[in-house]
Nucleic acid binder design. Structure first.
Lengths: 194, 194
DNA sequence: TTAATTTCTTATCATAGGTCAATGTGGCTA
DNA sequence: TAGCCACATTGACCTATGATAAGAAATTAA
């Protein structure tokens, strides 16, 4: 719980968080375990205390496409499914053994009632999410595979080292083979990662 | 103003809206006029009463990439720039002569203070935005040019007829030439639009 | 430690989509 | 009415990335 308390500490007092703690569930899951199945309604958000989660879709040809990675102190969920109570198009699973905090919309509602600070905090988080997605769309529209990869390792250096390359390829919208080629080409050009 | 009043009517009473009207500015702009310049901080959101706006980026090679279209009753802005007061990466301009309502964050703050309904309305709008973007990312990762085009005309039939094809191509992340070929192929396959 | 999986690389070939250049087409406007 | 301009189409060619297959390397399990 500690990380999550920390995460909230700017917007809620210790006693307020305690009040809300009945809406929180700590959970440990192993690598590969699934938290959300496409087709089912998402009822929780997941805050990562330790470990790494990811959301992804599976297309008609059975190919996975990574939508998001969530390392420590990140929140992951399917907000559309959550808010509109519609079946999710996405899966969420664990890339590593993970300790997480589950919370539902009731937590958000109660916290919002309790604290204006939390409201604006939450607001900011939503806007931040939009910002990330907007930039990603922009890059998918305009950048080459190599540019997208360079951008990725610069933006998420720690994730780069923790997930298999084929997942990064999937996030970038290319095949693992292509990513391997991109990396080879970068090595040839004397690119030093990090 | 009428459309905008209508848009808000579920979450704010007539008198509440009147109270807030001092934060609203109606504006008319001609086709091609620019509302937001990349590099400058975005201080307003734009509600389209009549007409059509669009946001786009320009990459290093000088190529435009359409991020979003906004026809009647849509809101467009750069939320990240707005909220974090950082220079925008995007332009917003008018695809058609447009009548719009400009409002700033003060409006949003005041409206939020006034009405819990507005707060959740706003919250929903943000989540809806995230949903749209998520689906778009998913499609950019997994669908072919043809699939993306079919999805577009199905999702935005009225926009399809109002904007030049090269803008749709830009939105889809392909060249106008490619879109032309996709359309030709669809015609060959006896695809009937609409 | 070996065996079994999973991941990564490499090579070859195939293809969607990009580039460039030419031509068409319709709507303005002078 | 002609001429212009933005937009759309077409064709020839090119390139980045996908598909497939095989082997190497790394991880995990036994």
């Amino acid at each position: 719980m500690e990380e999550f308390y920390n995460y909230l500490s700017d917007s809620l007092s210790k006693s307020e968080i305690d009040q809300l703690s009945k809406f929180l569930v700590e959970k440990r899951i192993g690598k590969g375990e699934i938290l959300l199945q496409a087709g089912s309604v998402c009822n929780h958000s997941f805050f990562v205390e330790e470990g790494l989660l990811r959301s992804f879709s599976i297309d008609k040809q059975g190919k996975e496409h990574v939508i998001q990675f969530a390392p420590e102190n990140w929140i992951i969920s399917d907000r559309s499914s959550l808010l509109f109570q519609e079946p999710s198009e996405f899966f969420i699973d664990a890339v590593e053994n993970t300790t997480l905090i589950m919370f539902d919309e009731e937590f958000v509602v109660k916290a919002s009632e309790l604290s204006a600070k939390y409201r604006s905090f939450n607001q900011k988080a939503l806007n931040n999410h939009i910002r990330h997605q907007q930039r990603r769309i922009n890059r998918l529209l305009s950048a080459t595979a190599e540019e997208r990869y360079l951008n990725f390792i610069q933006l998420y250096p720690n994730i780069t080292l923790r997930v298999p390359q084929w997942m990064i390829a999937s996030y970038l919208g290319i095949t693992p083979e292509s990513l391997s080629r991109v990396r080879k080409e970068l090595a040839r050009k004397n690119f030093i990662p990090g």
